[in-house]
Amino acid sequence: MRLGSERRVAVIIEDDADIRSLLESVFAQAGFETITAATGLDGIEAVRAHEPVVTTLDIGLPGIDGFETARRIRAVSDTYLVMLTARSDEIDTLQGLEAGADDYVTKPFRPRELRARVEAMLRRPRVTHAGSSDTAATAAAPSGAMHTPDAAHAAPAAPAAVADAAPGWIEHRGLRLSSAERRVQQGDVDLELTRSEFDLLGALLDARRRVLSKADLAAALHDDSVTHFVTEGDKRAVEVHMANLRKKLGDDPSAPRWIETVRGVGYRLTA
């Protein structure tokens, strides 16, 4: 995928002709060349052939469903993947994100919201580190509520919880992040994080010991321009990305080293 090129292609995988036409109009107005497909298999081939910047994907497709289509697309492409569906159940949101989606929008959707979300994604670098592309997280969703002891409600410690490391890096308890290089190191080891995981960790490090709500973190993933579009689905997506991030860090939510849950509020760095 070449984000810097002038040609911007969007692949639309949708079996409903009316919605497909609406999506074509939304992306054409945003300056995209559009390629459409009515089935998952045709959509996968379209992604292979046209290397789109962004792909929208319906879940209720004939043949293979949207979840399987997403997994197959993610295996061959780093296209930004937005799932569109009438389903709003939490399990569908989790499955969509785990299958490789970058975002999840329920129908009926507002064209302005979809366009804002896509443009926000495109303003964020797709590369994580050392030129590797952002791939979707596949870790399992949390099986229960994440919580920390009541001490999490205590007054925040001094901002010194995060230390300035080498120039351009910030560090917390041996975990280092460089926004310029899009790199995260745990000790001397580079971690492979998705774009969303990287942005969540960066937001928490920037906030130091200040608590960030799920809405705050959802807005951080989508850019301030879509803060007013934060939904319950966005908040559930934050939970999934956070669970995947913790798994990659090897951080136990019940005895966290780096990220703690403030019950009923959100997340912050450990002291």
Rank of each mutant, 00 (worst) to 15 (best):
A161C: 00
V11R: 12
V54L: 10
E45L: 14
R183T: 15
A155N: 04
V9T: 12
R246N: 00
E119S: 15
T128H: 13
R257C: 02
D188T: 05
A155C: 02
A145E: 10
L177R: 14
P167Y: 06
L205Q: 12
F198P: 03
R115D: 05
A139S: 13
H228Y: 07
A17Y: 03
L200G: 01
L61W: 07
A255V: 00
A130G: 10
P159C: 00
A28Q: 10
A136I: 13
I12L: 14
R71I: 02
D92K: 00
N244D: 14
R173H: 03
L205E: 09
A139V: 08
I73H: 13
G96T: 03
D78W: 11
R124P: 03
D134N: 14
R263F: 04
A30G: 04
G264R: 05
M146C: 01
Q29Y: 05
T148R: 09
M1S: 11
G40A: 14
A207C: 04
V118C: 06
K247H: 12
L204M: 03
E113C: 01
L204N: 10
S21N: 04
P149V: 02
V82N: 07
L177D: 13
K247M: 09
H50Y: 10
Y104C: 11
A139P: 03
A255E: 02
D18A: 06
D92V: 00
T106N: 12
V105W: 06
T128R: 15
Q186M: 11
V162W: 02
V76T: 09
A158H: 08
I73G: 10
I12N: 01
Y104F: 15
D103N: 13
V26A: 05
R236D: 08
R208L: 00
T55S: 13
D58Y: 03
L22P: 05
D103Y: 08
E98V: 12
H153Q: 10
V262P: 01
Q29E: 09
R268W: 07
G43P: 12
G66A: 12
A75W: 08
L61F: 04
D252R: 00
A116V: 14
G63L: 06
L204H: 08
A158G: 09
D15Y: 02
D16Y: 01
I44E: 13
T39L: 09
F229Y: 08
R182S: 15
I44R: 03
P125Y: 01
A141K: 15
L221R: 05
A152K: 01
D216W: 06
S21R: 14
A207T: 07
A141V: 15
A237Y: 07
E51Q: 12
L81A: 09
R210L: 08
A136T: 14
V226Q: 12
S77H: 13
S213R: 10
A139F: 14
D58A: 05
T194M: 03
P111V: 15
T138M: 09
V230L: 01
T93W: 14
E260L: 11
A28W: 01
F67I: 05
L201D: 13
A243D: 03
E171N: 03
M1L: 11
E181W: 08
G168N: 04
L269C: 05
A203F: 04
A163Q: 08
R208P: 00
D42T: 15
T34S: 07
H222G: 07
W258T: 03
E181G: 11
D18W: 02
T138Y: 10
V127M: 14
R195K: 15
V162N: 01
A165N: 02
L269S: 07
S196E: 06
A157T: 02
A203E: 10
S143V: 15
